[in-house]
């Protein structure tokens, strides 16, 4: 797959079909990758595809000029479709190089299972549904379902639906909502006061670094409401009240755009379970308005579309 990606990208650059490419290259730390944006054909050999390509690269699309080739997993391609729906990106300006994705590996889960820090692990290899971790010459095997990110386990669209080049055979989706929404279910079981208390505790840790916002392809406002000073909706001080308002409104802003790629939660330096908010938003859009994100690039966005009769039971 990697070889094919490199040759396809090289050909696209040489033929002048794209001005630059957005992909992944090996990161400076073990088992990581980092985004690579380049127009240089020589850099193309750095492009990689492995089970650690966690980033949603479509976040760079709005800031990149010219015709762009982009490496996209299932969730990323839906983010791109959603950007096209919002007129943020023109379809003819992107060449989507689709990767059928069977999930990316959560290193924290691997560390927990192997009982070792990621620096002490020698190798992590994925073969189908098995992940083999080598620690000090010893091989340990884990089922993929135990080490993939929660959002990957509930993924309904592992294969990009919108692409120009698909690098491999489509992957059959095997969403397991129960595992993927474990945290959400435990929240739903709580009485409302306890839920509010839970979020209050979580957001007391927030340092308002805005990593969640900056990493999110759906957060493309040129001026975020938190930075407004007239009127000042939220204080810049990281008080939990303002942190909570920020995140709740952010979730509402990304409703119908969030593809549950899980980037916000990964980016969070204080491990706030942000996906438990955004995932619920995806569920609500589907339950209330039968809206699945990033499926149809011609469809109007969630809050622009309407049916003549819907959600009337919520209104007096």
């Amino acid at each position: 797959m990697e070889q094919r990606l490199r040759s396809e990208v090289k050909a696209l650059l040489e033929q002048g079909k794209i001005d630059r490419v957005i992909g992944f290259e090996p990161g400076s730390l073990k088992f990581t990758t980092t985004p690579l944006i380049t127009s240089d054909g020589g850099d193309v050999d750095h492009l990689v595809i492995n089970p650690f390509i966690v980033n949603n690269l479509s976040v760079y699309l709005t800031g990149t000029s010219g015709r762009v080739g982009i490496v996209a997993k299932g969730c990323d391609s839906r983010s791109i479709v959603s950007l096209i729906q919002d007129n943020k990106v023109l379809r003819e300006n992107v060449v989507i190089i689709g990767i059928p994705c069977s999930g990316v590996i959560d290193l924290t889960k691997v560390e927990r299972l192997a009982g070792k820090d990621r620096d002490e692990l020698d190798d992590i290899v994925r073969q189908g549904d098995k992940i083999t971790v080598t620690v000090g010459g010893e091989r340990k095997e884990f089922p993929a379902s135990e080490v993939l990110f929660d959002n990957c386990l509930g993924c309904e669209f592992p294969t990009p639906r919108e692409y120009d080049i698909l690098l491999d055979e489509p992957v059959t989706p095997t969403p397991d909502k129960a595992i993927s929404e474990q945290k959400l279910d435990s929240l739903r079981e709580m009485p409302p006061e306890q839920r509010w208390q839970f979020w209050k505790e979580e957001f007391s840790r927030c340092i308002r670094c805005y990593a969640c916002r900056n990493v999110c392809p759906a957060c493309f406002c040129e001026r975020c409401f938190v930075e407004e000073s007239e009127p000042q909706w939220v204080l810049p001080v990281p008080r939990w009240q303002d942190n909570l308002i920020f995140q709740v409104i952010r979730s509402i802003h990304v409703a119908g755009r969030c593809t549950d790629c899980g980037e916000c939660e990964r980016a969070c330096p204080v491990n706030i379970p942000l996906r438990s908010l955004t995932r619920e938003m995806c569920n609500l859009a589907e339950e209330l308005f039968n809206y699945k994100v990033g499926i149809d690039k011609e469809a109007p966005p969630l809050f622009v579309a309407y049916e003549l009769e819907e959600a009337e039971d919520l209104i007096r």
Partner: peptide, 11 residues
């Protein structure tokens, strides 16, 4: 509708 349901989920 989304705001009401979502804030209900938040508590």
């Amino acid at each position: 509708a989304i705001t009401k349901k979502f804030l209900e989920y938040a508590g």
